[in-house]
């Protein structure tokens, strides 16, 4: 596969996570413009390039409005690039979506309120027209720690529990790619930390290629193999960091001095968008 590098990643050469790992997601030279209601054009992304190797966990870190969600929506086939190419395993994202090989969780849990926990987790099977694998559904409900709540409705659950259901739902079809758009963004700090620890545990068991969009530094650092810091408009990469912590990661990683040092680095990169470009 042709290795594609954007102009910014040339400034910061990106070492791959595993040298032999094939590319799972490639975003190359992508420009995305939106037409606003008043007729003006907004450039959300310009000449954006990034690559995710198979089985890696990459976090896009940036302030709101930096275009990080746009990248995720492009990879999710919810948007089409104005220029450039987005490919997952060499295919257009829409093809993966149509063959039910994408998993996704949004900031808003997007659980269907008329379905109980089990039915919400089963939804991807029904959408795909496949027979529901009850065993797998139950395993995932157990995995996210919701055993006993199978018949509860979303409104009976706490915010954290709803996001657990959303994570289980994203994983149920064993997707090739997992897309997480600030999945814990609406949760309080304590719950969020717990969810991060759980997601790390779940992810370490399956290692699905994952793209996480977040504005929380410690979340990105704790979960990802690589953190890409973005700044807006148009969105561009200002810093790429390979996270050195071995997996599975224990929560006390977050207390290490290395974690704090990297966290400060990323925060600096966030605060001074042009700084790390020199």
């Amino acid at each position: 596969m042709k290795k594609m590098r954007g102009r910014l990643s040339t400034v910061h050469p990106v070492p791959s996570v595993g040298p032999q790992a094939p590319t799972a997601i490639s975003v190359s030279e992508v420009t995305k413009k939106f037409r606003l209601d008043d007729g003006r054009e907004l450039t959300a992304l310009e000449g954006m390039s990034l690559e995710l190797t198979t089985g890696s966990f990459v976090a896009l870190l940036g302030p709101s409005g930096c275009g990080k969600s746009t990248i995720l929506r492009l990879v999710a086939s919810l948007e089409v690039p104005s220029k450039g190419v987005v490919a997952i395993n060499g295919q257009p994202p829409a093809e993966l979506a149509a063959s039910h090989r994408l998993g996704v969780a949004f900031q808003d849990h997007a659980l269907l309120p008329w379905l109980d926990v089990r039915a919400n987790v089963e939804l991807p099977f029904r959408v795909a027209g496949q027979a529901v694998d009850r065993r797998r559904v139950q395993d995932l409900i157990d995995l996210v720690g919701l055993a006993g709540f199978e018949s509860a409705r979303p409104k009976q659950l706490s915010g954290g529990m709803r996001q657990r259901v959303a994570i289980a739902r994203a994983l149920v079809l064993q997707p090739e790619v997992l897309l997480l758009d600030e999945p814990f963004g609406a949760l309080d700090a304590v719950t969020r930390r717990q969810m991060n620890i759980e997601l790390q545990r779940i992810w370490s068991e399956r290692r699905i290629t994952t793209l996480l969009v977040t504005h929380a530094v410690d979340e990105a650092l704790f979960l990802a193999d690589r953190v890409i810091v973005m700044s807006g408009r148009p969105g561009r990469v200002v810093r790429t960091l390979d996270v050195p912590f071995a997996r599975p990661r224990q929560p006390d990683v977050m207390r290490s001095s290395e974690f704090h040092r990297l966290s400060d680095e990323l925060t600096d990169a966030l605060d001074s968008p042009s700084g790390s470009l020199g």
Binding site: A76, L78, A97, S99, L102, F106, W114, P124, A128
Partner: peptide, 24 residues
């Protein structure tokens, strides 16, 4: 919108989205 997005990413056709989402 987020429900619609979700079903699109899951690969639901318009008819499936109608049946599973819009109508209920």
């Amino acid at each position: 919108r987020q429900w619609d997005d979700l079903l699109r990413v899951l690969g639901a056709s318009r008819l499936v989205r109608f049946r599973r989402l819009n109508f209920p």
